[in-house]
Write a protein that binds this DNA or RNA. Sequence first.
DNA 1: ATCCGGCTTGGGAAATTTGCCCGAGCTGCA
DNA 2: TGCAGCTCGGGCAAATTTCCCAAGCCGGAT
Lengths: 217, 217
Amino acid sequence: MNDVAATGISVLLVDDHPIVRQGYRRVLESQGDLHVVAEADNAADAYGAFKAHDPDVVVLDISMPGASGLEAIRNIRARSPRARILVFTMHNEAVLVKAAFSAGASGFVTKSSEPSAVVNAIRSVARGERAMSDDIAHILAEDSLSPTGSVLDQLGEREIEILRQFAGGATTEEIATHLNLSVKTVQNYHYLIKTKTGARTDAQLVRLAATCGLTRI
Amino acid sequence: MNDVAATGISVLLVDDHPIVRQGYRRVLESQGDLHVVAEADNAADAYGAFKAHDPDVVVLDISMPGASGLEAIRNIRARSPRARILVFTMHNEAVLVKAAFSAGASGFVTKSSEPSAVVNAIRSVARGERAMSDDIAHILAEDSLSPTGSVLDQLGEREIEILRQFAGGATTEEIATHLNLSVKTVQNYHYLIKTKTGARTDAQLVRLAATCGLTRI
DNA sequence: ATCCGGCTTGGGAAATTTGCCCGAGCTGCA
DNA sequence: TGCAGCTCGGGCAAATTTCCCAAGCCGGAT
């Protein structure tokens, strides 16, 4: 491996919003040492782009249609354990953060962070360090202290993803398509989530998701 | 800068993610005719910034924490009816689009749009035209409904009451009992409300009720 | 090595709800 | 008088939800 510090840091941007990618690209490139060598707008393309360009850092938003972003992380890491992945998203739920790290992410930064925090996180991750924004650290700290787990802790990763999409207004079929599952499976998850959380109504489910920060209203 | 009209279009950016604002700013300013004169990261500051800078166009994401973005639109328009507001968000639910337009927005563009579509929308809005991205036009076309009013204006007294209880988490039977109606009638109202508002999902209904202040979450 | 438990994925079948059509009573209004 | 709109519910096919079950997989415990 050559010296990253001398040549700069190559970045693969993964986000489903074209304009957002454009913006990030400009912000990162204005730093001088960061170079966006490729972009992808979905989890499926992310690994292809990674393979083709072998970037130092992958910056990706985990809230994408198609396969879950967590899926993408595992995907990339399974084939390239050296990969450095920085999750960059608007979500800040403790369960999500933990899921991302255990999936193999090297860092987790929210979009509420200052641009400087984001670029510093990219540099940290490129050096092989772990990185997270202050708000994430705070949330993880609180979480580790609280004896009463959030309701979401009872839910598996898939369940959380489905709950998020459901609360966001997606139909069962849309979720099935996004996640490449059968409608039947999504229906079963829907039911499972309700029983696990104790919600007796779809509306209660949405409120629950909202109060847990899974969705914004 | 003497004549704004001759020198380009001044823009106020409202989005709660600093990095995202940075990115938009760079994308817009690279166009030459667009100038970001101010930014705000919440609905409350948006009007202050508007008053201070009198921009030609306000570009804002309605999915912000704190006060609803719709609130912000109404706020600005109430005091400055000339204001041109372009909603720029990742959401693409028909109910939200209609709510935004009836709140006084001049345009609605999703973040899935190409950057060129976004800047063109800004130019259109600056000229006083209405603008929306193709996906939004498609969604509204499908929706193909009555000329607007606030979404709640289409609903009768009973419908609103039932929507409130439903969004609050009540079961169909519970609502029927509370209001002394047959379950069948409540079911019919449920259906009616969905078709009238264009909500395709119970979750969308809850979100709608929440954004209209019918229920708190 | 083996077993256990949990996650994920779906089948099946009964129960319930939805989607959409309908009619009827009531009110206000032209 | 008549129309229009809200309120209330029946009917019925289609879809969804509700439960229960099974199989594969994986990680941890024995």
